[in-house]
Design a protein around this nucleic acid. Structure first.
Lengths: 333, 333
DNA sequence: ATGAAAGCGCTAACAG
DNA sequence: CTGTTAGCGCTTTCAT
């Protein structure tokens, strides 16, 4: 059915080795033969069978990408970068969705190793030693995207969440907010959220403030939960703080909605700051001050590094930190 | 390095064909041998090399998925369904992002054919004959997800946008909205948007109303453009309609924001209805009445059908239409 | 510079 | 039921 190297060889009146040589430029071939073979390749639309090639080379041009949730906005942006740059360098993306479960992460790592992917790009909410170990042992080049990747001896790309938290802390302080309430979905260490809060703590410390632990509230990471938290807060009759800082935009949106539903002026009475700069930040009223991460670039750079590693370049820098940015909008003053 | 079928055969003291037979259950094998081989396979952690298998079978267990935009919310949800069900049946997803460009769609189709994927799942905003032709000619099983897939002789999964538009039309009419303005991003035929509007037209016709073409406004499909359209509309002093229907939630959000910024009560003065039921619909105030599509299911069912085709089942129904639903929220009354 | 031949790991006749 | 053998399409020694 489709044309093979044999067909090309026959048509050109040469051996298949010669055809292989002109395809891969692996050994000198006399000029007239090279031209003839090339012509035939073009005429027949011949494309080498990548599977056969993989079999003998023991290496595919697949890059296995494991992500924790395809439909997540942030992951989607990162994947856009990965896919675009990957294709640019002629690598194909083998996509695995782990749903953030270590069990599935490991399952997919093994699957990718078995498929002899050229490289593994591992995106995780929370990197675990076990996953790193399996990948490392396989000797397959790998790059990690995870907020805690720097805790491991691996190549990684990301932003400095502690620093971002620090920046938000300083921003809030500079705006003369005395009483600030922090909303974060969890208190286990090593999550993005706790890194952000760590940064805030540092900002507080540096400006001689005390970070009161009871100002840190653990709320589920969605709009509804944040909304209800604020409703309860108001109902309880406690005094409002000068500002709320939620570690993701969804929560911040819930805060704004609850405040507005109680006719509390945002930002005049209370400022609200989010994190992630999702589409919602621009749509909600008042629009949301938040922290932007270069998601597309995280994807693009991580795969670029991975491909360099795959192709044998020595990389010096192991951890690439990309810049974040506070986007100031209407919700803070 | 890794253990092959040869190693297993040697260890079991049988031929490689026998090992192959127990792996694939392709031919009867005596029980004791089967047990012995199985034990060795487990002990050695042997996994057949999928590349070698693909080479001889001329067929991989990859399913090529071409999507128009990974980071798009709707695509992400569909991909979730595709990935999850695909993995469940042991197929791997080869992801290609076409950015909706026919040129790239074709490039990736050819790439997937060359990779000998087992099947192609083609997701497109707007299916073109040329793409269909190439896939069809390759004889690779395929399933399409595109609002205009039904215009071609292919297997497809989706919702009936015309019918959804019809339902929205009837919904709006039943709510006693006399004057309605429709906002849609384009007027080229065969887009989702025009299908929706076609449905509205039918609803109008059936209830004896005239669909006035000047009530249909072509606006760019983003929040800002819709916002500005409404601002201009109000500034121009024209009378407000009873309702706005935008063919996506982002636009509807812009409408709501503009209306609210002008102190126009939604829904008491004007109702607003969107389309897609994105996260924004629940976050914006007032929350948005909109049309929900079963995105995850579209992905899940389309790949399920594709896999059945790949595995040789005869499918009778070519076009699967999944149910949509109007989600009534605060923005309409 | 070129060709013949071996072999990557596996499946599928074919023979027994 | 089991083993032998011939490839799948390609790369890569090893000769020439």
């Amino acid at each position: 059915m489709s044309v093979t190297i044999k067909d090309v060889a026959k048509m050109a009146g040469v051996s298949i080795s010669t055809v292989s040589r002109v395809i891969n430029n692996s050994k000198p071939v006399s000029n007239d033969i090279r031209v003839r073979v090339t012509e035939i390749i073009e005429a027949t639309n011949y494309v080498p069978n990548p599977i056969a090639r993989s079999l003998v080379l023991k290496k595919s041009n697949f890059i296995g990408v494991i992500v924790p949730d395809i439909s997540n906005y942030k992951i989607g942006e990162i994947l856009n970068g990965i896919e675009e740059i990957g294709k640019m360098y002629d690598y194909d993306i083998l996509l695995c969705n782990s749903y953030g479960e270590l069990k599935d992460e490991i399952k997919y790592i093994n699957l990718l190793i078995n498929k002899q992917v050229a490289g593994i790009l591992f995106v995780s909410w929370n990197l675990k030693q076990e996953a790193v170990d399996i990948i490392t042992k396989s000797n397959i080049p790998s790059v990690y995207v995870s907020k805690n990747a720097k805790d491991f001896d691996v190549f990684s790309v990301g932003i400095d969440h502690e620093r971002a938290g620090y920046d938000v802390g300083n921003y809030l302080i500079s705006k003369k907010n005395e009483d600030i309430i922090f909303m974060s979905p969890d208190h286990t260490s090593q999550t993005i959220n706790s890194l952000i809060i760590d940064g805030v703590r540092r900002a507080f410390k540096e400006s001689g403030r005390v970070f009161e632990e009871n100002k840190l509230k653990y709320i589920k990471a969605d709009t509804i939960s944040a909304y209800e938290f604020i409703m309860d807060y108001i109902k309880s009759g406690q005094e409002l703080p000068d500002a709320f800082f939620a570690t993701n935009d969804d929560m911040a949106a819930g805060v704004i909605n609850a405040l507005c539903d109680n006719n509390i002026d945002v930002p005049k009475t209370v400022s609200v700051v989010g994190y992630d700069n999702t589409r919602i930040a621009n749509i909600i009223r008042p629009t949301l001050t938040t922290v932007e991460q270069p998601l597309y670039d995280i994807g693009a750079i991580s795969i670029r590094i991975l491909i360099k590693k795959v192709e044998g370049f020595e990389m010096k820098e192991k951890n690439i930190t990309l810049p974040h940015k506070i986007i100031e909008r209407q919700s803070s003053i």
